[in-house]
Amino acid sequence: MSATLLIEQLINGLQLGTMLFLMASGLTLVFGVMGLINLAHGSFYMVGAYVTALTTASTGSFLLGLAAGSLAAAAAGAVVELLVIRRLYHRSHLDQVLATFALILIFSEGTRWLFGSSPLWLSPPEWLAGSVALPGGARYPVYRLMIIAVGVLIAAGLYLLISRTRLGMRIRAGESDREMIGALGIDIRRLYTLVFALGAALAGLAGSLVGALQSVQVGMGEPVLILAFVVIVIGGIGSIKGALLGAILVGVVDTLGRIFLPALFGLFMSPSEAAGVGTALAAMLIYILMAVILAFKPQGLFAAHD
């Protein structure tokens, strides 16, 4: 196992991690501020990817597509918040789970209805195609490096937003004491819609970025959603810092596990048996990680509040 391979895999893990962070930050914000558990977050990921694919196909500009995807996801988020989510803030978690589960069905089947079941294909633009040399000799795709860069920028931006701006102050106030911000005379309804749309936009951006790498299809948000839940549970629900650390941890552990576990078992088994045992364990690895962390820290690594 060479050092370059290890480095390359670490970067792969980091790239998965930044993408998870885009998903998890929205989820955790919405939970932290409004106390809402939102299963339909993956639908915004899908909306972003679809709109990006369609816009890029019709205008030929990937950047325009990215912007349209994030905006459409934000708009979808705002509409959903106004029509449905708003009625759920004072409801039990059970009602929130069920209503947002219903939203998943509506979004997924609605998209299937409109665009059919076949995946749409979106490619990175010419100027992001190809690969660059890494220190150590390996080559790495430019596009994936770009995803990491975007993730870092968003993380920095969120940090500034929350620590330096008025909106951020209100969000922090909302996280620490939900009753208080009402007393401060802040229009909670608008704040909530804004936060929800922001989370949706980040999910839409993640979907758009990943869509160009993979494919754009109905249900694409669901595996990512589950991973994002693991991330925020590990990080501590409501904590942006926890989401960032959890995302990178999950991204790296998942990527390295997928490669090294089969290789490890391959030392004393045939390749196909090792692949069976190794991939089975690798698929479970992050859930095991989560169970272990929760066994010691039932509120996650950086608990905000329950």
Binding site: Q299, G300, D306
Partner: peptide, 8 residues
């Protein structure tokens, strides 16, 4: 408890 229970 709460959301953690659902998620776990």
């Amino acid at each position: 408890s709460g959301v953690y229970f659902i998620m776990i």
